[in-house]
Nucleic acid binder design. Structure first.
Lengths: 145, 145
DNA sequence: TTAATTGCAAACCCTTTGCTTCATC
DNA sequence: GATGAAGCAAAGGGTTTGCAATTAA
């Protein structure tokens, strides 16, 4: 009997599996990758259902949507604000342990006069994995494994 | 005789006007808005040309591409790193005067071991304009004036 | 002269949506 | 049983791209 702006939300096997797939990885997968994973459990699921449920999960605060550069959205099963590092070579996204910079929000609201509700911080560069195999230009690998 | 990875780049009236339109506003416009503006000077220009040139400008470091939430990319004629505030009510994007947080890059490279080349920081909330006309839910207005 | 760039339109990718059927409450 | 959600497929928005014609160098 969960309620949100959309009315009642029923518990479905599909959404359950989608969320568990999302929570079982730290690769910040795309909708398509999640689709392929969920399909191994529910072979008849459709991409539309993936998208619909990801939207529900994001809107209800159970997941987070990330958009870097171009291409597909990436999803994070950890909805608490945290920061990311994006590798420009392989496209991997890493969670960072950097502590939340709440003071920056204060600074902005004081100086600019806007009511600040949230912030995002991400770093770009070459990840440790790609550095160790230098001179290799990966075919961007997006969130697999 | 500018050279970049793509070979020689010719100076064209189209790109000139696109860049000047982009630099003449602080509204962080979308490609489509730029298109409409440039069209008043070059009525036959096509959207494809807008996109092609925006890509050239971004790749050559003369402009910056911003992607917030869903929807179209927004472009910034100021290519130096700076931070933004995005109003969740009206979709306006504001430049912030917050100083560059270079120490955070150091912290990340030390702690996580990645080579950090850049970072982005943006704040979300309700802007001062929207706060003063409270109880009004704007039709998101995207970057017009 | 010749190769980069344009205009045009079609293609593309990712995401959303309409509709009928299914299944949860 | 109602009605929210699924599956399917078609539509949608934003962006890219192929190609012949143009134009800067």
């Amino acid at each position: 009997m969960v309620r949100d702006r959309r009315g009642f939300i029923r518990r479905t096997k599909q959404r359950e599996v989608i969320l568990s797939v999302l929570q079982s990885t730290d690769t910040h997968p795309s909708a398509d990758w999640i689709y392929e994973e969920v399909r191994q459990v529910l072979p008849n699921i459709s991409l539309g259902t993936i998208y619909r449920n990801l939207r529900i999960l994001v809107d209800s605060g159970e997941a987070m949507e990330l958009r870097f550069g171009s291409g597909a959205s990436r999803f994070d099963g950890n909805p608490k604000n945290h920061y990311h590092f994006v590798c420009l070579n392989c496209d991997r996204i890493y969670d960072l342990e950097l502590s939340l910079q709440e003071k920056l929000e204060e600074q902005v609201s004081e100086k600019a006069g806007h009511r600040v509700l949230d912030h995002r911080l991400e770093f770009y560069g070459i990840c440790d994995v790609c550095q160790s195999k230098k001179n290799t230009i990966d075919e961007p690998r997006h969130h697999d494994s």
